[in-house]
Amino acid sequence: MIINHPLLGPRDRQEFTYLGDACLIDRPDWQAGNAMDQFYEYVYLRDDPAGEHRELWYHEHGDRSWLVVTRNTVTHEITNVELASDVARKQGRSK
């Protein structure tokens, strides 16, 4: 599997470590009224689709950046790769 890093170009899968669904970017507000429920769903429940999946990969043996990769879990075809920092900022997260 080859991941086309936005800055570094195509890189072998072995340079990366997988985390999971990119929904992990949206950490709930711990002070929300229903924080308990939100955190239960955030930490433990997953969509786990057979098809397009947005997921977080860590370029551990490269530039150590985090990426949001859009990949089909049935064919393993990757259709999009973005820097996670760009995605998070677009979603209004981070400073």
């Binding site: 599997m1 899968r13 879990t73 049935v74």
Partner: peptide, 11 residues
């Protein structure tokens, strides 16, 4: 990594 392909990769 998440997969429903019932086949794996070379590494």
């Amino acid at each position: 990594y998440n997969s429903c392909a019932q086949r794996g990769n070379l590494p």
